[in-house]
Simulated assay, not measured.
Amino acid sequence: MRIFHLSHTDLDGYGAQFVSKFYLDNILFFNSNYGKEIDDKFEQILSLVQPKDLVLITDLNLTLQQCEAYEMKLKEKDVKIILLDHHQSGLECAKKYAWYFLDNSRCATSITHDFLAEIYGKDEKLHKFSKVVNAVDIWLNDESEFELGKVCLGLVSNAKEINKIMFDEKSREFIFYILEKSQEFFDKQNAHIALDNATHFIKKEFFKKEKDDTLSNLISTFIVDMLSQNRAKFEIGYEDKKGILTYNIGNTSVIGNDFLVANPDMDFFIDVTSRKTLSFRANGNANVSLMAKNLVGGGGHVNASGGLYNGFKDGYRYEVIKAQIVDLIAKKTQEKEMKDER
């Protein structure tokens, strides 16, 4: 039996997965914010499940329509579903569906911990972790763990160094690493201050491979390595040139240049963002100012240009994002060829 664990994208959502990772084997993780993304992630899960698998949903409340649809589709595949949540907005669903467990007195991490600890046995370290998350998630500001919980909340919300759309598993691994390391401070004096002071070094330890460097440089090297290892997935073409497409990669100038230096056979680097902007980078092998002009009416320098793609629709999966840029290139290339023939 495999377990497909879908959870929210905040401390409580990842915290619930951190707990299930401790207790369970053969588990695949998915994270979603609210809205259409939940349905998108469910469809991904549905395409992977097999009979006797289990879908576990935490820290996400569903609508009645979603409950009905999910139950029906999973029943057809002989797959069980359990939902553990604490949002009062799910009360109507909890009354109708036996698999929908709701308890608004505890956060999802605490519910998940107590549920699994009852089956597999209590772990004191993990119990403390669930109390820290609970204190901040349901805002128990008189609890001793509250300030520590606030620091952990910030650790997860600010863990944007690895883009989760492009590198979903690695992004989650990074967050789990931070949560694991945070536990080392729980019993220290002024634990919240000690953890806050150590945050920079915790992140550096994750990204550091051999020699030390600034956090920014370590992150750039790490991301460039990830892009290089998976370049076939990100590769796109433009006329007789080849490059890669990233999404919300951040620090485009540094990462784009570092990638092109590490991959001299690649001609250009494009980053598209949720704000519809396109950033183009080259290292002497392509004129990206012309590329930006032809594709989106943008421009700039030969090796660094930009533009706005008004038709871009943000998405939850890299494949959907890449398809839009590939279609744009195909359309504009065809238009240019027809114009040149006249």
Rank of each mutant, 00 (worst) to 15 (best):
F4C: 05
D12N: 03
G13M: 09
G13T: 03
G13R: 01
A16Y: 01
D25K: 15
S32H: 08
N33I: 14
I38M: 09
D40P: 00
D40W: 12
K52D: 12
V55W: 08
T58D: 09
D59Q: 06
N61A: 08
L64H: 10
Q65V: 15
C67H: 09
A69E: 13
A69N: 13
E71W: 02
M72I: 13
V79S: 04
I81A: 06
I82P: 00
L84N: 07
Y97M: 04
A98K: 15
L102Q: 11
T109M: 04
T109C: 12
I111E: 00
I111P: 00
D114F: 02
F115I: 00
A117N: 04
E118Q: 13
I119W: 09
K125Q: 10
L126T: 09
H127N: 13
K131L: 15
V133K: 03
N134K: 04
V136F: 02
N141W: 06
F146E: 03
G149S: 03
L153M: 08
G154C: 00
I162N: 14
N163I: 07
I165V: 15
F167V: 09
S171E: 05
S171D: 10
I175P: 04
I175H: 05
D187G: 12
A194R: 13
L195H: 00
N197Y: 10
A198V: 06
I202L: 14
E205W: 03
F207M: 04
E210N: 15
E210P: 00
D213G: 01
I219W: 09
M226F: 09
M226P: 00
L227T: 11
N230E: 14
R231V: 07
I236L: 10
K242A: 02
K242V: 10
I244N: 05
G250L: 01
G250M: 02
G250C: 01
N251V: 15
T252V: 13
G256P: 02
F259E: 05
N263E: 12
I270L: 11
I270W: 05
I270N: 04
S274W: 09
K276I: 04
T277M: 14
L278E: 06
F280D: 10
F280L: 06
N283M: 11
N285H: 10
S289R: 08
S289A: 12
L290N: 11
V296K: 04
G300N: 03
G306E: 08
N310E: 11
G311E: 12
F312Q: 08
E319G: 04
I321E: 03
K322I: 06
K322N: 08
A323F: 11
A323W: 08
Q324G: 10
Q324K: 10
T333C: 01
K336C: 02
K339P: 01
K339Q: 11
D340H: 06
D340E: 12
E341R: 06
R342P: 00
